[in-house]
Nucleic acid binder design. Structure first.
Lengths: 373, 373
DNA sequence: TTGTATGCGTTATCAC
DNA sequence: GTGATAACGCATACAA
């Protein structure tokens, strides 16, 4: 061609004009008049080349907005600088306010080590996730919130070489890193608080579809026993509680029993706030007629002046990010386990019960299944 | 058949024992006794091979938990099935409650087309993001919430071949797809509502660091003018308002003026709730002494019984996801523009002002240089 | 129907 | 210091 002997600047023009695609290291090398190896060296392993070459390469790369392809680079180096994060909960609504705090914590933690987050959005709304999903080379490690992987799936993942940190899960293989919160302490503190206020008829309202909820339920039963309080079966119903409306039904069920509780401990703030609304709709005053306590200390809990247990979701995320870092540095899963403390926050929805018996203005008979007070 | 089984299973064992790394297509090919091309064909282009071969390949792949490397596959196909999402806001706190709704919408929208989200977390806490950041081949397209990219950066990105959808941004190149909300309508409705209640001294409290805030501020000024109300300069201060404490200072400033407003329109719910608290701390009753309105209809707004403008954050996310899909199918950016409607939600923090005059304990109103009271 | 060969863009290992 | 070149794992066009 006529232009074979053009100066590099015009070559740059040619390249710039001809590429719809992004410039590659080859383009940079050609423009700078050096080999690809030299370009790679200059750009990555600073220090083993002449200043003149260095300048040429840098300028060529900058002028054509060269950007190394991250995929190929990962292929070469074996590391993606990306962490997979699976949180089922992003699909759910206000029942789980803590997701964003969690993500923020993870982001902050990973930013410290310049890693990005691959947020798995592709999973279906229902059913278990294929563990192989995390093994396609896109991520260096995975952080798994509950709800996606079956125990077997987690087992399989654990036996692979992918570092994994589970969150809010207790039924996991011993070798898997995990960050949990101290559910039992939180519930014990809540029950203790209520007992000190004079409550003896304490109910527990919660779904049971995650380890956390199960632990909280068990802790409630333990706490009741510890205080010599025998919870009636209908005070701790095992319902689905997946939507707001469910809380109303559950409340009807609970209020339809012969002996009403004077306090309700809820599995999380979402349930507690739904319970608050259901109670108020039915003419009950909180905390005069019934006390209500939640779990999580979400933003809504603060607004609702809800007594609740504060869990450090952001710290859970940061801890998980640090564990990921540790695992990538060779730590074993067994060494990366944390149970973060929680703290009871007493607010306006809990108070002493009205003198032993149900209050005077409470409905005599709740319109459900002929039950009476 | 039996012979085949024995043969392949023993080979499988050998392979399984030898690999610490993940099996590659070569391993599968060897185990199945076919070539890599055949494996690839069987796994991807169904239909052009014998049943026997097909069965062998499938079984070999399944038994060794073969998973194609997504990086290489992307390299090959030119598509990553991943969308980059940049939201600065994940770092911020309760000032921006809508982030999770947004993410949920994006996730739902992308799940429809089996794409995942690369959530950029690596950006520093301050300063502009390098546009080249999104051009390293890891994503097929990008969704950009405000705050990260400078206008020039966005321009540069727009001139690249990467499909981009901006959110909540109005000052963008004409060719860039965008999803916005109708800020002006929301503010006009709010001011209209307050005017109908009898307010004339209406203030505007908001930061101004994003397009949305600026639009809302301008809409406030327009609405005031439309109602022949000349807002005093001190009723629409231009402050930073980046933390909760700032709202208190701003409130002190506003309440320290000679003529007090009877209503405060806020830039978002976070500001409004901070304003509510600041007002109550200073002995003002809402809405008796002052009315307050927000913007967004976050969960906190519902809890606080705040009059506000509902914005469909989740729908913003879903729309963005759909635009991404459209762009990837060849649509031009100009064709992918949406301004989603908002809706005024009147709640308990707005009411008629106390009978024309300021309340008894408020400082007397003193007219200043032609300002209409 | 199946196998072979090529190339994707980069890093890294060697010669020079 | 610098430049060839192998290798990464896969898809695909093409040959058999």
């Amino acid at each position: 061609m006529v232009y074979d002997d053009e100066l590099s600047s015009s070559i740059l023009c040619k390249v710039a004009l001809s590429v719809a695609r992004h410039p590659t290291i080859n383009d940079v090398a050609r423009a700078a008049g050096v080999s690809v190896g030299t370009v790679s060296n200059v750009l990555n392993r600073k220090g083993r080349h002449s200043d003149a070459t260095r300048a040429k390469v840098i300028r060529a790369a900058a002028s054509m907005h060269y950007r190394p392809n991250a995929l190929i680079r990962s292929l070469q180096t074996g590391t993606t600088n990306t962490i997979g994060v699976f949180t089922w909960r992003v699909y759910l609504g206000a029942w789980h306010d803590m997701t964003l705090d969690l993500l923020r914590g993870i982001s902050k933690g990973l930013a410290e080590t310049s890693r990005d987050v691959l947020l798995y959005a592709r999973h279906p709304h229902e059913g278990d996730v294929d563990p192989g999903y995390f093994l396609d080379g896109r991520v260096d490690a995975a952080i798994l919130a509950p709800g996606g992987l079956s125990p077997e799936g987690l087992e399989q993942l654990a036996s692979s070489s992918l570092p994994v940190v589970t969150l809010y899960q207790s039924r996991i293989p011993a070798s898997v890193a995990s960050v949990r919160i101290d559910n039992a302490s939180g519930i014990h503190a809540t029950v203790e608080h209520l007992v000190k206020l004079g409550h003896r008829r304490i109910a527990f309202l919660s779904p049971a579809y995650s380890d956390d909820f199960c632990e909280r339920r068990q802790a409630y039963l333990d706490a009741m026993e510890r205080h010599d309080l025998a919870p009636r079966a209908e005070w701790a119903p095992l319902g689905e509680l997946e939507r707001e409306g469910d809380a109303g039904e559950m409340m009807d069920y609970m209020l339809g029993t012969r002996v009403l509780p004077t306090a309700i401990v809820c599995g999380n703030d979402g349930v507690a706030i739904a319970a608050l609304r259901a109670l108020r709709e039915r003419g009950f005053a909180v905390p005069q007629d019934l006390s209500v306590a939640g779990f999580d200390d979400s933003a809504a809990a603060q607004s609702e002046d809800l007594t609740t247990v504060r869990q450090p979701a952001e710290e859970v995320g940061m801890t998980a990010a640090r564990f990921v870092e540790a695992l990538l540095c060779g730590a074993r899963g067994e060494e990366c386990r944390a149970v973060l403390p929680v703290q009871l926050i007493t607010r306006g929805t809990t108070a002493s019960p009205r003198d032993g018996r149900a209050s005077a203005h409470m409905p005599l008979a709740v319109p459900m299944k002929g039950a009476s007070v």
